[in-house]
Amino acid sequence: MEAFKNFTGVVAPLDRANVDTDAIIPKQFLKSIKRTGFGPYLFDEWRYLDHGEPDMDCSGRPRNPEFVLNDPRFAQAQILLARENFGCGSSREHAPWALTDFGFRVILAPSFADIFFNNSFKNGLLPIVLDAKTIDALFAKAGGETPLSISVDLSAQTLTLDDGSVIDFDVDAGSKRRLIEGLDDIGLTLQEVETIRAYEERRRQEAPWLFI
């Protein structure tokens, strides 16, 4: 995984609650056996007016002018501002793959669905939980003529808005370290082979029916 670097990016406001992973990347694109190339199909059914299929060239497809990512102000956005329960539904990791492939690196929401939240960290995408009031205030700022831009500092756990105001955020220490160092979870876990084997040996005695 690529290490997470601090950056300053534009915020795209997606003002709806319970955005599910079927909406983030519809099922027909899940037939791919690759991890890449999902960005053009991100939010496909909201972003385009026609029906999308895998490997379709999206450059000439009719776009929904009402959808936030089709607004030129937000076309290069790297931060997605969302409402509660973002990423609910299916466990498909294609959702964070599509978001990162599009260019998103941070998602701000009052709450996230559990599996999506975990999947994001595995892909260098930082989901940040902020209280509902702060999210409301950010929505008010993000909808203006000039898009809102935020500087993200993961080490300091701060978001600095373009008016200079600073918002602190929480992140689990282990996840933070893995993001900053771009560590491979499997490689790290395999450093503990002996611990896992010892556990397994004990369990083979205690609960042999689990090892038939």
């Binding site: 466990s91 599996i115 975990n118 999947n119 595995k122 892909n123 979870d185 499997i186």
Partner: peptide, 9 residues
């Protein structure tokens, strides 16, 4: 349920 990275893990 888990994502694909965790399937691999």
């Amino acid at each position: 349920g888990i994502g694909t990275s965790e399937v691999e893990h």
